[in-house]
Design a protein around this nucleic acid. Structure first.
Lengths: 344, 344
DNA sequence: GTGAAAGCGCTAACAC
DNA sequence: GTGTTAGCGCTTTCAC
């Protein structure tokens, strides 16, 4: 069936499109009678306004783009859930794109999103991303950008992140509080601010407890996978003086590290205590249950959305843009994998 | 910076918008010289075509809506990943909406998606959905709909599903092959076709092996959660003659059931064998590792996308719409939780 | 090779 | 109360 337009209704009723338009949006001064007939005709013809025409006219689209590295990651599912909840309440929709942790792809998808005419963008940078020119370009076209989780100080924009430094510090302090002194860290790739912060938190905790930083206790992931976690922990286990405890940059790495321990017959936490980061649902289910630092993914999504909507509004009303940097608390979740046995 | 339009470029160059438009899309008969200047001016003014204007003109939008019950579910992450991969290759974007397993919300989001002007819809029905009028409405407006995973025979549309019947049959047959005779089933809610099929596969396998259907060995979930899995399995465990094996409608239910077993000191699989459905990543990680039926989520996303794109094309070219019903194979993944110990 | 003009479907200021 | 008119930004046919 051909889609009905205002004109179709107008012609079938012998009135003008303007009248029809007003009747459908129940303007104050429209007669009860015509309103009725118009409504009836609209119903009969299955009228629905043409979205693009409305959008073009009103210069607002009510769609925001979301760029994340990988949908499969449970943390991002949480974030998206928060974004969707906020956005849908206000009649906004979200367009989802993956960068697959590739800088090239991130540029491509942001440009595509811009081309579809989104009102704003929520972006979690890829691990490869250093330069942010592609996002500055968006801003120049009056498309506001809010960063979350993996952000860059190079972009003047609002952002919402977990307090990675504090989370990491707390995790390592929790280990040190129990008397461990040889604590290793498998860190993430060098660029993302959040893995840097976690590394910084690790070092700060060591320093605060008067312990030396030992380079042989630190390894750097590229892909942040279970395999890398297993690989690097095997290296730690092979050291003349292996670490007694491990802080992993993320849960997948922690899980991999534990796999390596089990394969070698090491017990967790007796032979090595482990704590991860992100607090995936599986942490609770595994044996031993895995201690982790929980990130408020859902809240990050909500807050980032609120900031973006604020900027969209400010832009529309030609107000000066305000940027906010939000840092949400992380909370350590202590479970079996990091609890030192009472009598060792 | 105010967004530049064709007119801005035209005025700054003393030509008409038509010329500029043609120059930018390198039409054959446009002079080398003007093309150069236009391109330069466009660059200088940071020109980008206004998406809505283009869309309005061309009556095509290159955005499809996706409606799923819940993004958090790993299966849907897989599906979305498949959808995004296919769609982005062809320059399409996806708008994501959640129904939260609510019929009301499903109606709301489909209407909102229609209002944003999507070219088509990929829908996984909520557990509550029986009537499909809201989707028929979309079809009447020439917005093609493709169902996946949870579908309805009431809607004349293409669909892509896992072969739930066969997957369930295989899972139960795998248990029966090992000599178990008392096999229970925790089934899903009554409406979704897929949980019906899994139930049917369960019954068919029992029948094929000449075993009676025992109503006390079947329970029905409402929310399909771990808690329900634990709850119903406790009921099974309390029976005078408890089942020796359990086929759970989904992995979360299987995990809950195993939790209940462990709490009561029952061993898995020695005291009760368990097999789930969906093959979440955690199945491999848990102890015992959980047997499950793997659904090709990524492929479901891909195939559904391809079908939708085909219908969008057919619609645009005014060809008759072809619907296809795809049923993709499920594969049982046998792990520890369902393997009968050799000497019992 | 370029301009003029119509129109995609809708809204809104301005008439009367 | 309703009609007229002028666009939103772009594409495309038809002139010249």
């Amino acid at each position: 069936m051909k889609r009905a337009t205002l004109r179709d209704i107008a012609q079938s009723l012998g009135v003008t499109v303007a009248t029809v338009s007003r009747a459908l949006k129940n303007y104050p001064d429209i007669s009860k009678a015509t309103k009725q007939t118009v409504l009836a005709a609209a119903e009969r013809l299955h009228y629905a306004p043409h979205p693009m025409a409305v959008k073009l006219r009103q210069q607002a689209y009510k769609v925001v783009g979301v760029v994340i590295p990988d949908i499969i990651h449970p943390f991002f599912s949480d974030v998206i859930s928060g974004i969707v909840d906020v956005m849908e309440d206000l009649g906004y929709h979200i367009i989802l794109s993956q960068s697959n942790e590739s800088y090239e792809k991130e540029i491509r998808v942001t440009q595509m999103l811009q081309a579809t005419g989104v009102d704003g963008l929520l972006v979690c940078l890829s691990n490869e991303t250093v330069d942010v020119g592609h996002l500055q370009a968006l801003q120049e076209y009056d498309v506001p950008v809010v960063l979350f989780d993996k952000i860059s100080p190079l972009l003047e924009a609002s952002s919402v992140v977990t307090n990675d430094f504090q989370g990491a510090y707390d995790a390592v302090a929790h280990l040190l509080d129990q008397g461990y002194t040889r604590v290793a860290h498998i860190k993430g790739p060098p660029h993302p601010e959040n893995t840097r912060q976690r590394f910084a938190g690790y070092r700060a905790a060591l320093a605060a407890y008067g312990l030396p930083y030992r380079a042989e206790y630190v390894a750097e992931c590229t892909h942040v996978t279970q395999d890398e976690g297993a690989f690097f922990n095997r290296q730690f286990m092979a050291l003349a003086e292996p670490p007694e405890a491990l802080f992993a940059v993320t849960d997948s790495v922690a899980i991999g590290a534990i796999t390596a321990l089990k394969e070698a017959g090491w017990r967790v936490p007796q032979d090595m205590a482990v704590i991860g980061f992100s607090d995936w649902a599986v942490c609770r289910l595994l044996e031993p249950s895995i201690s982790s630092v929980s990130q408020p993914g859902y809240d990050i999504g909500r807050r980032a959305s609120e900031l973006l909507l604020r900027e969209i509004r400010q832009l529309r009303e030609a107000l000066p843009l305000e940027h906010s940097q939000l840092v949400l608390d992380a909370r350590i979740q202590i479970r079996q994998s990091s609890q030192r046995p009472v009598s060792v």
